[in-house]
Nucleic acid binder design. Structure first.
Lengths: 190, 190
DNA sequence: TAGCATTGCATAGCAATGCCATGTAACGTC
DNA sequence: GACGTTACATGGCATTGCTATGCAATGCTA
C-alpha cells in the first residue's frame, strides 16, 4: 500500500485477509502501533542494507559507499522513508535506528585512525553532519521537491566538503567519494 | 492550535468563531486548502524574516546570518516548520518558497563576486547544499530527535566546510561564520 | 477425560472527522 | 423594487479509529 500510495486505513489493511479489524488491535494495539511497526521495519531494512556495504582498503570510499546505500534505500522506497521520519521520535526501539548511524561513525573513525582524517577528528560529529545533510536531501527528494538525479551531485560535493574539512586531502577525497557514487560499479541504481 | 499541538480539525477551527464549517469551504475549499494556506503563510513569514537580515561588509558572515535566521524561524515555530515541509510539493505558489532560497543564492554569489569564494563557484549549488544541510538538521530538531542546542555547532561546522570547499580561506571563513552564530549579538535566541 | 480459564478474534456499534446537498438571508445590479 | 449572486447556517452522509460484547478454539488442571 505504501508503495502504491494507497491510503492505509484500518479497514483497508484487513480487507481481503479474511480477518477483522480486531486482529490489528490484538497484534499492534491500533493504527499508531501499525505505523510504529512500519517505522521499525524501515530502520531494520536500512540497517540490513548498510551492513551489506563491503569494507575496502579505502576508508573514505567506504564512508561514501554507506551514503550511496542509504540514498538508494530511501529512493527505492520513498513512502517508507517518509513514514520512518514522520514520527521518528516515537520509535520504541531507538537502538535499531541508531545502529545505522553507528556504522557510519565507525567508518569515519576508521578513516581517521588510518590517517586520512585529522587525528583529533570528532568521528561522531562528522558522521552526524554527513547524515544530516543526506537526510535533508533525501527528505526533499522523497517528497518530490527535488528530482532524484541531483542526489549524486549534491552528495559528492557535500561529502567532499565535510571530509576535506575533517582533514582529508582534497584531491584524494574527491577521488574516493566519486568512485563510490559513479554509476558503473554495479551497485543498485539511484 | 499548531503552537499548542492541538489537533486541527474542521470543527475545532470554527468553534468559538460563531461560523459554521461551510465558511471553511467557502474560503479554503476544504481541509487540504487550509493546510495549503498554512504552508504558504509559513513560507511568507520565512521570506519576510530572511529579508530582515542586514547586509554587512562581510558576505560570508551574511550567508551564515541567513542560516541563523532560518534556524530561529524553524525552532520558534516547530509545528509550522513541520507543516510547511509536510507536503511542500503541493504548494500553489512555489515562487514564494523559492524566494527564500534565492536570497541565499544571492548572498553566496556576492561572496564569490567579492573574492571570498572561487571565481567559478556555482552559487546556486553551494546555496542549495547549505539549505539541504540546514533542512536536514532542523527537520530532525522540530521532531524532537535532536535537541535544539546542537544546531549552532553543526551549522557552523557544515557551513565552514561547504564554504571552505567553495574557496574561502579556512580561518577567515570560521571567523565569519562563528560571528553570525555566537549568541551575544542580540539576535533572536535559538 | 471433564471442567475451566485464557486467548484470539468476529460482530456490531459508537464518536469524531471531512464533506456536501439544501435552504436562506444579505448583497449588488438594473 | 425585483432579481441573480454570493456567503454561509443547518442537517445529514460516508468513512475513520476504536471498543464493548460474545463466541469458539486452545491449553492447563485434576
Amino acid at each position: 500500500m505504501l508503495a502504491d500510495r494507497e491510503p492505509v486505513t484500518l479497514r483497508s489493511l484487513v480487507e481481503g485477509t479474511g480477518a477483522s479489524t480486531m486482529a490489528v488491535y490484538t497484534h499492534f494495539g491500533g493504527m499508531p502501533g501499525v505505523w510504529r511497526a512500519v517505522r521499525q521495519e524501515g530502520f531494520t531494512r536500512l540497517s540490513a542494507r548498510l551492513a551489506t556495504v563491503p569494507r575496502t582498503a579505502d576508508p573514505v570510499h567506504d564512508v561514501a559507499a554507506l551514503g550511496v546505500a542509504y540514498a538508494a534505500n530511501a529512493i527505492e522506497s520513498p513512502a517508507l522513508y517518509r513514514a520512518m521520519f514522520d514520527a521518528v521520535a516515537e520509535l520504541e526501539d531507538p537502538a535499531g535506528a541508531d545502529s545505522g548511524l553507528a556504522v557510519l561513525v565507525d567508518a569515519v573513525a576508521r578513516a581517521r585512525d588510518e590517517g586520512r582524517l585529522a587525528a583529533g577528528t570528532d568521528a561522531a560529529g562528522v558522521a552526524t553532519r554527513l547524515w544530516l545533510a543526506g537526510h535533508g536531501l533525501l527528505a526533499l527528494v522523497v517528497q518530490g521537491v527535488l528530482p532524484a538525479d541531483v542526489v549524486p551531485g549534491h552528495s559528492v560535493e557535500t561529502a567532499v566538503a565535510l571530509l576535506t574539512a575533517a582533514g582529508d586531502e582534497p584531491a584524494a577525497c574527491r577521488t574516493s567519494v566519486t568512485r563510490a557514487w559513479e554509476p558503473s560499479t554495479g551497485r543498485p541504481r539511484v
